[in-house]
Write a protein that binds this DNA or RNA. Structure first.
Lengths: 209, 209, 209, 209
DNA sequence: TATGAATGAGGGTTCATTCAT
DNA sequence: AATGAATGAACCCTCATTCAT
């Protein structure tokens, strides 16, 4: 019986979560009103405070959930047998899949979290650092296995890789583009990887002079 | 005489501008108070309304100024005799120079403008589209002159190029890093270009398989 | 069986009572939350409403209990064979004993009840009037038996006597002082009585000129 | 001109002060709403925040003003040539005068400040201690000049003296009694002093056995 | 041009109370 | 008897904006 309660509580939390996601996407953190979120969730606004300490806390829980999943994925990637190409593609597809399933979440990540220093407390910045470090680990392994050039600081490679990915997502997010077929995701992932690995330059002459 | 007045007005506006820049950087658009900006500028908050219609208008003017300068640069680049490499490097250095001279401006561009949909009205999104289009023009020219590969959508190339640049700037901005020497800027620009053009992959085998 | 139920109910009520006492002392009536009291009592806050109609009612019950005991004591004193001195000392010691056993109760009496007009409804004021009247009865008897001077309004004597007592208690309450030995209580009671009866003046000359 | 501004500001503050006084008296700190105070003052509630940081601050300013005046009086009394009797009478009359002119202030002192530990921060308790110490100074001088008995702790004398005074004030405050004639004030002061100095006991036998 | 007093919409948060389980 | 989810009135405080001076 107790379990049912727990589950019900979790479910309700999730409803509030999803409502918050939608409202945050539409209005941004500062303009999102608790009343909006509650209305979206079909509950009274007082109840939001039953499940979350306050607005700040609600955002934090969303972020924590986001980061937890992302870290989990990266750890899995690191443990996997995939080669560099497969690993990076896995990461890209994770973002694209998430965008497909929960576009609001990616929207918020792109527009609110990944940049806004207003919201960025030191704790939250730490999450970013950890994320960048995990990606760097993967790229350093790539350098060691001679899959990636070693004459460029691994940190720079991280910036360029994630930068390209983020801009892709940004464009989709800001343009409200939909992502329907798996084929489309594959194509995007491959293009990104292709240019990241082989460069935008045309042919040998452009690439190595 | 009239000119003096005009000039004085411009000067005062600029003072408010710079103050706004600083406060916006520190607090973000929603938490930045007119009173803060006025205090920073050393004037009464009522006076701000003599020079700007309202808070929204103040932000718009800042953005307009930013975009105007950026468009101007891009037009100059397009008209210049430089080759693709020089053009892209010029663009990168423009951002780095601006970061050096007015870090607040880049900070706001990165954290507030480039992503926030809260602030992004349709009009403002147009500025982005125009910016991306101008950069795309340059890259398409590169493709036509066989400097850039033609098997990738020029749009994708824009995303990857600007994405890498933006992430570099983001890192500096979020980390409050300083940029002192010209040499440092050169190195960053070259690294970015090198990877963008030739890819992160190591040697032929990695790049073309 | 019914008795057991009644008793259990009384017991539970008493637990809530004591918890309320503690919380009221710590936070005062307005800041004391039902949830605090329930937590202190180790029960859910909903249950409080099974035993008390509402917050107001809970406070009323506490007050009623307090006044009932005090009235009972005063009636006993009036019926007793003690002389004036013994009667007044009995009253003082009652307060000191109560402070020793239930400091929270005296704390609340001093800080919340005896003065606060916020809480003082007309009904509650009546309790005060009754208390003052009962003490006045004792002092009037003292005047009749020539133990107390008759040239001062008996009402004034009440104010001075209770005022001194209350300030003593206030000091202990506000200073969180502890009262351990019976000797200490005796000393306080004697000092109070001594000054009340014989004045603070030094010798005849000061007292009767 | 500037002076006029300053004065106007002070005046407005005073209006808010007085309104606050009235509302605080009627409702007590926790139930007093800023909106009430503003309405009483005939201004919008937002303006209250122009003059005072918040509700807490408003209360603090009232308290500070109260204590400042009281301390000033006590210092004057200490410096004066009056004898003990005159000094104590001066103190009593100050309270009675204030009650006559600003009954709300005395009301708040009695019901909110002098007891409520809810409102009593450590800083505010310090004011009490200072007040008690200043009165003790006067009484110790009385002991030294043989006007007061030395066989009772001077601290106790303070409690008894101020206790009587406070209870008098309390009765007036809680009963909403008016104090019109100077004669009435004189009579009260004399009675208080008479009993404080010579005791409530009747004749020698009662007083010295 | 310049000031800052004045306004009030807006939104976060608390918490007593009810009620289904 | 017992729980705690659910509700919403109440109230504090912020701050953009206006306007008299």
């Amino acid at each position: 019986m107790k379990k049912d309660w727990e589950e019900l509580k979790k479910e309700k939390q999730q409803i509030i979560f999803d409502s918050a996601l939608k409202i945050l996407k539409e209005k941004g953190f500062h303009r999102a009103r608790i009343a909006d979120i509650a209305q979206e969730a079909g509950i009274s606004y007082g109840l939001v405070y039953h499940y979350f300490k306050n607005k700040e806390d609600l955002l934090n829980e969303i972020l924590d959930q986001w980061w937890a999943k992302l870290y989990q994925l990266l750890e899995e990637i690191k443990k996997s047998e995939k080669n560099l190409n497969g690993r990076l593609k896995g990461l890209i597809l994770y973002f694209l899949d998430t965008y497909q399933r929960k576009p609001d979440l990616i929207h918020i990540f792109i527009t609110q979290i990944s940049r806004s220093t207003t919201i960025l407390t030191e704790t939250r910045l730490d999450n970013f650092r950890k994320f960048f470090n995990l990606v760097e680990d993967i790229l350093v392994q790539g350098q060691k296995s001679k899959k990636l050039r070693q004459d460029v600081d691994s940190r720079y490679l991280v910036y360029i890789f994630l930068g390209g990915l983020e801009t892709f997502l940004s464009i989709m997010v800001l343009g409200n583009e939909s992502l329907t077929s798996d084929r489309q995701k594959e194509k995007i992932a491959d293009s990104l990887l292709e240019v990241f690995l082989n460069g935008a330059g045309a042919g040998k002459s452009a690439r190595r002079t």
